[in-house]
Design a binder for these strands. Structure first.
Lengths: 199, 199
DNA sequence: TCCGGTTGCCAACACTCGTTGGCCAACGTC
DNA sequence: GACGTTGGCCAACGAGTGTTGGCAACCGGA
């Protein structure tokens, strides 16, 4: 509650930056790791604080409570490419490639998936990412915009399923596939979900 | 440890069945529900015992510890159909249809998925179900048996992704799809993953 | 030099968890 | 009727949780 955000626009470079900014971001970094590997419940405030080499009470002072920490740690920007600017037939391939890059870039998406499965706040956040960032892209490519949500849902199912088996459950066959193989297999699927006439 | 299994072949019908058998199975039933809706950590022994209207210590006496309860509650038999007995071109459709039935039949698969994401024992169990029940079926259909595991992995990604978005995360578009629509969309995908020449 | 805010740690609270051991009542068998 | 077995509850332990308040050290501006 009494977290003070009352600083006016820090100079980004040179100036004597407050130490707290470093610890704040250090907390976020280790929190992301913990949420990604342990899920919400097992990612305890104490464990996160220990990783960040500070006292658990600091986490509370900076982020209010555990929910606040999670909200701050896991904010997803898929930075989706504009599929409408591509040749229509390349949409599927562009989508898989982009997603694979996002998943391997950092652990935020893994954290979100692990938490979303057991924690309702996490699930809602996943849903908002889907609604605000994936569906609009589908709307730009789909033949009938009214079907955009359903088609985006099918794409999400395929992409999240791959992420689940590969990055979370670590099924050996899913882990063993090379990126190009995944793209080659999934691109036609997504292409069909996005642009094929509904069956 | 001192759980006594030392009874000799009960008469299955009519006879005065031990009360304990009823409570044992009642525990399993509510445990499945709890694991399915709450995941491993939040499905506490106390909550399960309360649902079953017994004392938490009874759960311990019957199943040793929480791990043992989970192992007993979540045992999955996919009872896969013999895809080799079907026309080759129907494999994909048969697979989706069968899976949708399994997921909606009871909550065991939901429980397994929710637990597998955050609990390592659950993840290993998922892996063994995949390896022992799905891969063999793929092996019977795939052109090259050496690729069976990889192709089964792709199918698992698609099927688990659908289950994730529809039964766990409850994305509205995934929930809104009718069963026939899902079959129509996914069957060609699985068919390709199973039988198409590798790209 | 002083002084107010910032940064941090420590100790504790209230709670829940899995787990244990003892006690009690009912029951079937001799 | 005595007795061991079985099914069940109660009370407690020890560990771990999120969370809180107080207190010491530091630092920058007056």
């Amino acid at each position: 509650m009494n977290v003070s955000h009352s600083r006016s626009a820090e100079p980004a470079s040179g100036g004597a930056r407050r130490r707290s900014e470093d610890t704040r971001s250090a907390i976020l970094a280790v929190a992301r790791e913990r949420f990604a590997t342990d899920g919400y419940d097992r990612a305890t405030i104490r464990a996160i604080a220990k990783d960040a080499r500070i006292d658990p009470s600091m986490v509370m002072r900076y982020y209010g409570n555990k929910e606040g920490l999670f909200a701050a740690a896991v904010s997803v920007d898929l930075s989706m490419p504009d599929l409408a600017a591509l040749p229509r037939a390349d949409a599927g391939q562009a989508l898989v490639t982009h997603f694979l890059g996002m998943w391997e870039e950092n652990e935020v998406l893994t954290a979100l998936l692990r938490v979303g499965v057991t924690n309702s706040a996490g699930a809602e956040r996943m849903q908002s990412v889907f609604r605000d960032q994936l569906v609009p892209v589908a709307r730009a490519v789909c033949p009938d915009p009214e079907q955009a949500a359903a088609r985006a849902g099918l794409c999400a199912a395929q992409l999240l399923g791959l992420a689940l088996t590969r990055y979370v459950l670590r099924f050996p066959p899913a882990v063993g596939l090379a990126r190009e193989e995944i793209v080659a297999w999934l691109a036609p699927t997504l292409q069909r979900y996005l642009t094929a006439p509904s069956p």
